[in-house]
């Protein structure tokens, strides 16, 4: 299976990439690591006339600190994010979640920003970014740059706040140094997309949860932040019974899909079980 023919450019700078986007508009498609795009092109579910490869733009790669935030370049691979000591120290939830993406070969090519921009609701990068309140830095035409909160970034199925002539360049993650973290992913076979997964970061002191961040994968058309559960967990002892009670309503208001892996009610049940496990593990239980 071979993609339909397309023209191709691998610009060296974000500015050149943006100029190509402006020139080709709807006919152009951005390729980052290509781990989601190439299967789509090969099955000819999409046939762009022009492909813009971001692989030569070095400044989009890497992780750095900027005050209270970690800045992850959009083209940093999942492997690089999973093995980065700064991410492990300040945003362990992201380290743990990206380590579950697909398989090792795909993580060596696939990028953190590419997966976020692709916005597959069963993907594993959206929920941890949402849980930690990440901000998305988006470059536009004429040198414009804007920053979008995680809450506004995920719009719908495979749809984000990134405009047609814009590029996601960086993801800024507020540091959660010292927080416990866990990504509880439920799959039935190897290298599967999440049937449901739960991202949890917990700040616990003396056996009591002082703050919690919880977000859900594949419980709707976008990753979902479970704010009611976060509030219910605040001040609770980090015990299985207390957490079970606090997370009981985690699936309220969600709209999970029904497919061959399970129906919506099954996913709502899974969300409860996985949230309890994720929070308990993140709290050190």
């Amino acid at each position: 299976m071979i993609p339909a023919a397309f023209d191709y450019a691998a610009p060296a700078t974000v500015e050149e990439a943006l100029a190509l986007l402006a020139e080709h508009g709807d006919d152009a498609k951005i390729i980052a690591g290509g781990q989601s795009l190439l299967p789509v092109l090969r099955l000819r579910l999409n046939a762009p006339e022009f492909v813009i490869d971001l692989g030569k733009i070095d400044r989009l790669r890497g992780v750095r600190e900027d005050g209270d935030a970690l800045v992850i370049g959009a083209m940093t691979t999942h492997s690089a994010v999973a093995n980065d000591p700064l991410v492990a120290q300040h945003a362990a939830l992201i380290s743990k979640a990206v380590a579950t993406v697909a398989d090792a070969q795909v993580r060596n090519r696939g990028t953190f920003g590419g997966a976020l921009a692709h916005a597959d609701p069963a993907g594993d990068v959206g929920a941890p970014a949402l849980a930690l309140g990440a901000e998305f830095v988006i470059a536009g035409q004429g040198g414009a740059t804007r920053t979008v909160d995680a809450a506004d970034f995920f719009v719908d199925l495979f749809e984000t706040a990134i405009g047609e002539d814009e590029l996601l360049t960086e993801i800024r993650v507020p540091k959660h140094t010292g927080w416990g973290a866990h990504y509880e992913k439920f799959v039935r076979i190897a290298q599967q997309w999440s049937i449901v997964a739960v991202a949890a970061a917990v700040k616990a002191e003396g056996g009591t949860i002082s703050e919690a961040r919880v977000a859900l994968t594949n419980m709707g058309s976008t990753p979902l932040r479970a704010t009611a559960v976060e509030q219910a967990l605040q001040g609770k002892p980090a015990t299985e019974d207390a957490i079970r009670e606090a997370v009981g309503a985690v699936a309220d208001g969600t709209n999970p899909p029904t497919d061959l892996n399970g129906d919506a009610d099954y996913r709502k049940h899974l969300a409860q079980v996985l949230t309890r496990r994720a929070v308990l593990t993140a709290a050190g239980g």
């Binding site: 299976m1 191709y8 691998a10 390729i31 290509g34 781990q35 190439l38 299967p39 090969r42 490869d53 692989g55 492997s79 398989d103 090792a104 070969q105 795909v106 060596n108 090519r109 290298q191």
Partner: peptide
Amino acid sequence: DTSNCGACTVHLDGHAVKSCNMLAVQ
């Protein structure tokens, strides 16, 4: 031919990747 099976695995700059799931130009 769908990027699942890994038979096409090669090393790219020292790390395993699926060569059916990347373009030669990449």
